[in-house]
């Protein structure tokens, strides 16, 4: 794949190929005065793997409700190889958010091939609304059954 990453400076979006290391991406962004704005050191894993594992180190979405991490993506269905494209948009109201089938799903249903991440200017004010929302409650049996049912029909 020729795309490594591409910055849309006007929208502060970076379009990155799945295997670009998050650490290298962050370093390159810093060279442009931008940052992913993570709470922890960026991992060396590829962005696809990072998103598939729930983007460890990314700040809580409740800290800055008007921003988000992923604006769009391209992914292939794990079994059929068919391609799902969700174009970048700041928000949408066109049915369920299909990113949920990728984010934190460890590649069970879809494999990311490209992702549009929202970046920040390094000199931007940091928004950090305090909150006590529990980060990762355990998956209940009823939720697990639904995930299984989805795994049985989405391929």
């Amino acid at each position: 794949m020729s795309l490594v990453f591409e910055i849309d400076r006007e929208s502060l979006l970076v379009r990155a190929a799945s295997d670009v290391s998050v650490a290298i991406l962050e370093e390159s962004l810093r060279g442009e005065g931008l940052t992913l704005g993570l709470d922890a050191a960026p991992p060396s894993t590829g962005v696809a793997d990072w998103i598939a594992h729930g983007a460890p180190g990314a700040s809580s979405p409740y800290a800055d409700p008007a921003s988000h991490l992923v604006a769009g993506f391209v992914a292939t269905r794990a079994r059929s190889g068919e391609v799902l494209r969700v174009k970048p948009s700041p928000r949408r109201s066109v049915g369920p958010d299909l990113l949920a089938l990728v984010f934190g799903m460890e590649g069970r249903l879809f494999a990311l091939t490209e992702v549009h991440l929202v970046v920040r200017r390094q000199d931007a004010e940091r928004v950090n609304e305090p909150h006590g929302v529990r980060a990762d409650p355990p998956v209940s049996d009823a939720e697990a059954r639904l995930f299984d049912a989805i795994g049985g029909v989405v391929w």
């Binding site: 990314a58 809580s60 958010d97 949920a100 934190g104």
Partner: peptide, 10 residues
């Protein structure tokens, strides 16, 4: 879930 799977967005 901040770092895990969630069906809330679905």
């Amino acid at each position: 879930r901040q770092h895990g799977p969630s069906l809330v967005p679905i």
